[in-house]
Computed example of a mutant assay.
Amino acid sequence: MGPLDAAWHLLNFFAPALGVGLATTAMARLVWRRELRGTSFWRLAGWASAACALGLLAALIVFGRDGKMAGYGLMLATGSLGLWWAGLRGARP
């Protein structure tokens, strides 16, 4: 595998984390409009995407391969945790 192939492989591995991070941030900003007013979209998206990427890496380590549904479930759980940490942790109703 050449360097260009390795780069594409890594980009394709982390692409779902970025997509899910951006999509869940957009949905969270719609649902919790008032609570997330003081937090920027890009800060939330960064935290959610980074947490999703960590979830994918953890699933790769635990299961030994990529693409398992449990791994994607872990990615969603860690992304939700990242959104909560970045925006909703201290929110009052």
Rank of each mutant, 00 (worst) to 15 (best):
R37V: 05
V31D: 11
G46N: 13
M1T: 07
W47G: 12
A70N: 10
A50N: 09
L81E: 02
M75K: 11
K68T: 15
V31Q: 14
G67Y: 11
R29E: 01
W8A: 07
T25C: 11
W85K: 14
P16I: 01
L22C: 10
W85I: 07
G19W: 11
A17E: 01
L88F: 01
A70Q: 15
D5C: 00
A17R: 06
R37M: 06
D66K: 07
S49Q: 05
A51L: 05
T39E: 10
F14Y: 11
G90M: 08
P16C: 00
L22H: 11
S40G: 13
G71D: 00
G82W: 09
L57H: 04
A70H: 11
L76V: 10
R43W: 15
G67K: 06
M75G: 08
V31N: 08
R37I: 04
G46E: 14
G21L: 10
G2S: 03
A45P: 04
R92N: 13
P16G: 03
A17W: 03
G21T: 08
W84E: 00
G2T: 02
G71S: 02
A50R: 10
G87V: 06
R43L: 15
L18E: 00
R92T: 15
M69Q: 13
V31A: 14
V31S: 10
R89H: 13
W8D: 04
G90P: 00
T25P: 08
T39C: 03
D66Y: 15
G73L: 15
I61H: 14
M1V: 07
A15D: 01
A26C: 07
L81V: 09
L74Q: 02
A28P: 08
A50H: 11
P93V: 03
S40Y: 09
L54R: 09
R29I: 00
L30V: 06
A70F: 12
R34S: 09
H9V: 03
S40W: 11
I61P: 00
C52E: 04
R37K: 09
L83S: 05
L60C: 05
L4Q: 04
V62T: 05
S49F: 12
L54P: 03
A17F: 02
A53I: 03
K68R: 15
C52W: 02
G67Q: 13
W42L: 15
A28T: 12
L83A: 05
S80N: 03
C52L: 02
V20F: 07
V62F: 03
L11M: 10
A70P: 06
G87I: 04
R33A: 05
L36K: 07
P93T: 01
L36S: 05
L81K: 09
R92H: 15
I61V: 15
A7Y: 03
L11Y: 07
R33W: 05
G67V: 08
L60P: 00
L60D: 04
W84H: 13
A86W: 05
R92E: 15
G64F: 02
A48V: 04
M75T: 09
G73I: 14
W47E: 10
L11N: 05
A59I: 08
L57Y: 03
G67T: 11
L74V: 11
R65E: 15
A26P: 05
L81C: 10
T25S: 12
L4H: 04
A59R: 09
L60G: 09
C52M: 03
M69N: 12
D66N: 10
